[in-house]
Write a protein that binds this DNA or RNA. Structure first.
Length: 102
DNA sequence: GTCGTGACTAGCC
DNA sequence: CGGCTAGCCACGA
């Protein structure tokens, strides 16, 4: 299993997200020091080698929309709800409040 | 070495 | 609001 630098950083950050909080691609990109690399992040999360260990479902779009998920956004929503996050019309309620800034 | 592409973003109408 | 557009970078084929 070969991980790119970005992968390592991203996964490392993902596990830092506290329960009940979410983040978005842009913040994640900023956190790894490359604000314009959100594209890569989406790709990497899609590869998703550790989908069960890492909280990849806690990553949403910058406007609070769910974005995507390898197993379908339905699954993603279910997982988010388990964390106490409310989803309405494919959008996160209280988005700015539960948004976790690194 | 070159080309295509993505779980996106921001800006404009 | 919403839909459309251009821009962006690293990775894999």
């Amino acid at each position: 299993m070969k991980l790119t630098k970005l992968q390592k950083k991203i996964y490392n950050l993902l596990i830092k997200i506290p329960e009940g909080k979410i983040t978005n691609y842009k913040l994640l990109a900023k956190a790894i020091g490359k604000p314009k690399n959100w594209r890569e992040i989406g790709k990497i999360l899609n590869q998703n080698p550790f989908s069960e260990k890492y909280h990849c479902y806690k990553v949403v779009k910058s406007d609070g929309k769910i974005g995507g998920y390898k197993f379908g956004i339905k699954k993603k929503i279910t997982l988010l709800k388990k964390d106490g996050i409310i989803i309405i019309n494919n959008r996160v309620k209280n988005f700015s409040k539960i948004l976790f800034r690194f």
